[in-house]
Design a protein around this nucleic acid. Sequence first.
DNA 1: TATTGTTATACTCTATAACTATA
DNA 2: TATAGTTATAGAGTATAACAATA
Lengths: 147, 147
Amino acid sequence: MTAVNPPALPTTLTFLLGTLGSIATARFTERIEAIGLKPKDVGLLSLLDTRGPASQLEVSRTMGVAPSLVVTVADRLEALGAVQRVRDPGDRRRQNLLPTDHGLELLERCAAIAAELEAELTASLDAEVREQLRAILSTLAQAEGLH
Amino acid sequence: MTAVNPPALPTTLTFLLGTLGSIATARFTERIEAIGLKPKDVGLLSLLDTRGPASQLEVSRTMGVAPSLVVTVADRLEALGAVQRVRDPGDRRRQNLLPTDHGLELLERCAAIAAELEAELTASLDAEVREQLRAILSTLAQAEGLH
DNA sequence: TATTGTTATACTCTATAACTATA
DNA sequence: TATAGTTATAGAGTATAACAATA
């Protein structure tokens, strides 16, 4: 029941998204290293910024990573002074994660780096087309439940 | 010299491409496992299909991976009967990699899997918008020298 | 007993460095 | 001496399983 003549792999959106996404991530990773952050650190900070404080297990589920990885990331961010762990007074098993002012500053620097990188990656596009792309990808992200 | 007020990270194309790309790759990886392939195997097969036979070092440079990784990938593909190593008669140090008929069949199955996945990932888009997206991403890929 | 977080351990991917064969 | 490929080794990232504290 598969297509007899599938389209060439490099023309599929699966391939294009995967390839361009990995380029974007590799360059972003390289640049945030200068401020001591790894991609997962940024993911966690961004999550706290978007959805507010959360317990480690909530973060684990939302990010789709193992609870033990949240410990590692939170340890690093705490050492950087970017997040605080606060025991939930109502349930002392829970560690609520709060971004600090410094953490929010770091996140803002990441956003600036991402914007800069976006400009470079899309230098071949007209401004109008760039916004079309943003709109389409936002639709896909929403469909995947990423907001 | 950075923007005083950068756009929110999740709205940047850097973030959207990285996130959606990693989703696409994760799902693709899961599905090609059924036919014994890893993502890098598919990359190598696709490269040979697109640019013709190549030595391992050429592959290493084109794919941007270490020569030792090409050995690993070529070993696996050879064991699957998907590529053949042929000593270059003019320079016996070189191992030219050739896709076999079976390798090309596997590649076609990967293309079918990618097409199926594309349909799922973009189910929220009109056909017209989907083609807009393909055109824009192809432009970006070309600008990155991926063709 | 079940849940939250942590620690110990292992697995996958990939790179670097040392080595072999050929030029 | 330089280059193509290979092997040995190590590091990064992440998961699974065992464990501790709290419910």
